[in-house]
Design a protein around this nucleic acid. Sequence first.
DNA 1: CCCAAGCAGTAAATCGTTTTCATTGTGGTT
DNA 2: AACCACAATGAAAACGATTTACTGCTTGGG
Lengths: 334, 334
Amino acid sequence: MSIEDVASAASVSTATVSRVINNPDLVAKATAKRVQQVIVELDYRPNMLAKGLSTRKTGVLGIALPDIFGEFYSELLRGADSQARALGYHLLVSSEARIRNGDHAESALAFGLIDGLAVMITEPDGRLLPEAERSGTPLVLLDADPEGQKFDSVVVGNESGAREAVRHLLESVEPSQCCFVGGPRENFDTRHRAEAFRSALAERGHRASDEQLSFGTYTTEWGHKWASERIAAKSKRCCGVLAGNDEIAYGIMQACQDGGVSIPGALKLIGFDDSRLASLVRPRLSSVRVPAAEIGEAALRLLVARIKNPSNPRSHLTVQTKLVIRESSVGKGS
Amino acid sequence: MSIEDVASAASVSTATVSRVINNPDLVAKATAKRVQQVIVELDYRPNMLAKGLSTRKTGVLGIALPDIFGEFYSELLRGADSQARALGYHLLVSSEARIRNGDHAESALAFGLIDGLAVMITEPDGRLLPEAERSGTPLVLLDADPEGQKFDSVVVGNESGAREAVRHLLESVEPSQCCFVGGPRENFDTRHRAEAFRSALAERGHRASDEQLSFGTYTTEWGHKWASERIAAKSKRCCGVLAGNDEIAYGIMQACQDGGVSIPGALKLIGFDDSRLASLVRPRLSSVRVPAAEIGEAALRLLVARIKNPSNPRSHLTVQTKLVIRESSVGKGS
DNA sequence: CCCAAGCAGTAAATCGTTTTCATTGTGGTT
DNA sequence: AACCACAATGAAAACGATTTACTGCTTGGG
């Protein structure tokens, strides 16, 4: 089952067999045909390991995410998978844990096994980056701050969509009555979204008060809690909400239903992510679409571009978010 | 950066270095220590390809699914990933397309690259199975009919959960007024679930009429369509529904809300999959839980068991489904 | 003081490819 | 007829590990 068997069966040298497979032009047509035949007959498959060892290319790309759970990552992974196939690569998946503890031998780089790695870093203090740089492994960073980075990257353009969303809210709501209900304050995306919220209000000459921005977690519960409290404390008016993600939005929606606040009648609500949930819920949830699959695709494209041409200048890609208007945010003003 | 560099830096032979890494007991403590030091200093990593070529083990497991999209597959993949890590393996992911067209060189087996493969077959006519058998690659089949198969397998035990669900419905609904609203008739799971539905009714001495079972697709739309039609045609009573999955159930739920049929007042509804949706929706949806992650985990466990002991007898595992009762199915009878 | 045993360590074969370099033979030019 | 370019192939050296013999050196026992 090795190339040598094929060679002797076709009474040629291994070199010739190899050429028939990888570079058919270099061998006489007659020989090529004969060898081909033997290959089929014996059902021979080149051993990828040996091939990889020799060529220093394995045709495997790695992707490392904090988790592969939840719609966002799942979508991202799907994009990566389809793109990998399209580009003729295999995909090695890993959740970050293995990187973080990065315990030397177990590293996600799976040394020698992969031609390149797309990775979403959560702990900037890891040893992965320096290591990759040293070993020259092609790397692309997902959703990480590209400032001053020495690697290719693709990030989510939260600004555009968030801004769009706020502008849309402002069509029917006063700037002072808009709120942003985000996830964890220290989260990369949360910060960007909050910032976009602020600056969209600033465009209208309104300086957002601290009360207009709240931070919690990316869960239904947090949305529910926030909304319930607001409803209880009637003093603080709020007629337009941009939620940090759809889960939060959904929590708010439920609290409003329980509390007799009609959506979109009394409260305009916009989510973030445009998850499956958004179009299933009633009223259908307007939401800022984050094209997760595209991120995965773009990352892999960047990655193979770098592999094919290591001296390219760095690329930093931004996939744009976009408001999808449904029912929860439209209708007459407050 | 190769083992030879380490060897010469520590002034020993490559064999010794290799031993220090893989079998420290075979080398004198003093030498081992010295070599270790050099390894750390030089930050040496064994090349996995070379290692794999030599040992015929790569530490990579493959998993091939029809798609990696949707909550079920995403969960399954997550289970597989975590288990792979726990077992000390890497995970190579592929959607089936690459298998199907199985065009020789591109095969999902990635010859030599993986130590074993977990695969969900959709086309039984593929060349994958015979090929794996011939090449002796360890394989485990996911959710495929284990009858007469020559491989390990893990399947979903639809029966138990479906039966439980029907019994639960029968607590408040007459057997003749129960319906099953399934996905595609030819689907493996659909058939099993329908069968379980039938036999659970049979337990109560009721032979299900054709009208009690409907087949469509696993979509919200199909559920909505089915329910709308039933509501329009008042003649056909139906007070208890087991849906083929949560999507269908959700479609039914919406149609009922539109049509003024109260759930669970006038209609008891149970979904299948226990997806995230089920606990978000109001009324909360009772649903048969299918432990997708466990499938992935079990598959990988079976796989490495086989790798470690190729002559084991075949294992066929069934992960059991289980009814989760929430709001949509409880309350007084019709 | 000698021998067997045991331990440390080495040289070299091996895994299955690719690829360089050398070697043929063939036909075309002068 | 001599020469050259060129196409087709083969032999052998990488690639970077593991592993199997095998060689010296200690030791411990008698």
